[in-house]
Every structure is written in C-alpha cells, then in structure tokens.
C-alpha cells in the first residue's frame, strides 16, 4: 500500500481556547472565595462552607443517576424523587431497627449501621427502579410529554404507597450517637455528620468517575450518551446498558435519600418531590449527561444556598434560580454538556 502523501498535524490552539472548557472547575473555589470576602467571620465561613459542600455532595448523589438517564436515553424521569423518598424510608427504618448499634457511642458500630441502612435502601430502590423502568418508562421512550405525565403519575403512586406503609406522619429521629454533635476546627464548629457526608460523597464521585473513565462499561455509557445509535451499530446492546444505568441511578437516589434524611433528621413521603427542583437545577447547569458537571453544579448549589441563607435569608429561596440563570446565560447548554444535539 502506498504511503499517505500528506502530513497529519493538529492546529495549536491558544491558551484561552485550551483553558475555556475547564473554566467550570474554578467556579467552586471562586464561589468559596467570594463567600470568604462577603462573610465577615472566617469561622462562620468555614462552618457554612463545610455545610454547603455536604449539602452539595448529597444532591450530587441523588442527581448523578438522573443526568446519566437523561443523557443516555433522553428520558425525563420526574419519578426520580420517588426513589429518594423510598430510599429514605427504607434506610431510616433499618436504622431505627438497629437501635442497639446506633445507640452506642462506638463510631464503627454507628458507621456499620449507617452502611447497612444505605445498602438496604440502595437495594430496595434498585428493585423499584427496575420495575419503574419496565412498567412506566419503557412504553414511553421517545415521547417527552408522555414521559413527564406518566413519571409524575408514578411519583404520586409511590408517595401514596409510602403513606399506606409508613403512615401519614413525618418521622422524626436522631442520628447515631457518634455522628451527633460537632468538632471544632480553627475555631469553627463543624457538624460531624457533614464531614462524613463530604467524605462519602467525594468517594462516590471518584468511584463513579473511575468506572466511567477506566472501564469498558463506562466507555459504553459515555459513548451512548453522545451517540447511542453508533454504540448499537458497534454491537453493544444499549437497552441493557440503559436499564443498568437506570437501576444504578435509582439506587444512588435511594442512597442519597438516606443521607438527606440523616442530614435533616426528619423524613416525609414528599421529600423526594421537594428535592426535584434542586436536582433539576443541578442537572441543567451541569450539562445533560455530564457526571463532572453534575458534581460541580451540586457543590455550587449547596454553597450558594448556605452563603445566601446566612447573608440574605430572604433571598435564599431564589438564590439557586439566580445561579441557574447566570450559568445558562454564560453557557446555554450547561457547564459541561455531553448531549448537545438533543
């Protein structure tokens, strides 16, 4: 075969062009820096920052599955909130049943109980997700309006089932003994549970990133988000991958539900539906299909909510809407969109 008679080169791009796609990475430290300037007391800033990061991590856990489902199969699942509520109720029920483990001041016993609760919640919501996908989502592939209507219907049905099984009242509880209270760092009181949430969320993000970047299944998911048709033409059964992602996303939502319940120390049947507003904001500003964008978006939402609630409580409710407007004016497809053409 003859050698090619052209020399391949790649045009050198300027520094700005190379940096521009990565700009969202500096938004979290930038927002934290602005918070440090705006909040007069550094100790208050530290408390609020850890609180914001913990809140962001929990929102990320709940939203990450949704962004992949949205990106991979173009499915708008308003029923995602149902998995959060079910996860919280199953997990907290397990935790309450493990009172002998949570009532002692042993950190390891407490963490083991929390892990069992999380595992139970994740398994229950994974099973629910499988049924939800088969019965509710599968018949409406490709029809957005129908997806919104039937998944909203599914959410209402699941909420009513929670009321039937656990009763109509909110369930109040306290965290395991070793996770109560705060530690003092640099003069700031930081709740122990928030530190656990930050560590757990970060570990989960790194694990997800590793799966998506370093495994073949992750490669298929990333490629499927971008061009599902071509993935199928290469011989991969994307439908099975999608079901797997949907189930994993449901399990993550359930897991996030337990963590959110422990954060608030109260659970209600409609807690998932209430959180959907924040989750949608995170998915949209992160960019459809992007786990990294979702992570940054969730941290921004968590920090913004905490800073504004401290500085201007009346503005706290609209602060995240303002954040979404600002980001969409800057990048109309979100910070790191993977799905651009849909």
């Amino acid at each position: 075969m003859s050698a090619p008679d052209h020399t391949p080169t790649m045009a050198r791009t300027g520094i700005w062009q190379r940096l521009e796609p990565h700009l969202p990475l500096i938004l979290v430290p930038l927002l934290a820096g602005l918070g440090l300037v705006a909040i007069p007391s550094p100790t208050s800033w530290l408390t609020l920052t850890v609180s914001g990061l913990a809140m962001g991590m929990m929102i990320f856990i709940m939203a990450s599955g949704m962004t992949l489902v949205f990106g991979l199969m173009d499915v708008i699942n308003f029923g995602h909130g149902a998995f959060i509520s079910v996860g919280a109720f199953v997990g907290i029920s397990i935790l309450l049943a493990l009172g002998s483990m949570t009532g002692t001041p042993s950190l390891w016993l407490n963490l083991a109980a929390v892990l069992l609760a999380i595992l139970g919640a994740a398994l229950a919501t994974a099973a629910l997700g499988l049924a939800f996908e088969k019965v509710i989502v599968e018949p409406v592939y490709g029809a957005h309006l129908k997806q919104i209507l039937v998944t909203m219907g599914g959410l209402i049905i699941v909420e009513q089932l929670i009321l039937v099984l656990w009763g109509p009242d909110e369930i109040f509880f306290t965290r395991p003994e070793a996770l109560k209270g705060a530690v003092t760092f640099a003069g700031a009181a930081i709740e122990k549970y928030r530190l656990v949430a930050v560590g757990f969320g970060l570990a989960l993000f790194l694990a997800m990133r590793w799966i998506l970047r370093s495994t073949k299944i992750g490669l298929i998911v990333r490629a499927g988000v971008e061009n599902g048709e071509m993935v199928e033409a290469l011989g991969y059964r994307l439908r099975l991958v999608f079901v797997g992602v949907f189930v994993a996303g449901s399990a993550l939502a359930g897991l996030g539900g337990v963590m959110w319940g422990l954060y608030q120390e109260v659970i209600t049947a409609h807690m998932g539906a209430d959180l959907m507003v924040l989750i949608f904001i995170v998915v949209i500003i992160g960019g459809l299909g992007s786990v990294e964008g979702c992570f940054i978006g969730a941290l921004l939402v968590g920090l913004m909510q905490n800073y504004i609630a401290f500085l201007q409580p009346k503005l706290a409710l609209i602060s995240n809407i303002g954040l979404m407007v600002a980001i969409l004016m800057w990048r109309p497809q979100g910070m790191m969109p993977v799905v651009k053409a849909k």
Partner: peptide
Amino acid sequence: GIFSDLTVEENMVLA
C-alpha cells in the same frame, strides 16, 4: 459517528 468526547484510543477500544 465519531464519539467526540472520547479519545481516539477509546473510540478504537470501543470498536
């Protein structure tokens, strides 16, 4: 049908 967000290597591995 190129996967733009994947590297050339990842495109080939997937193939």
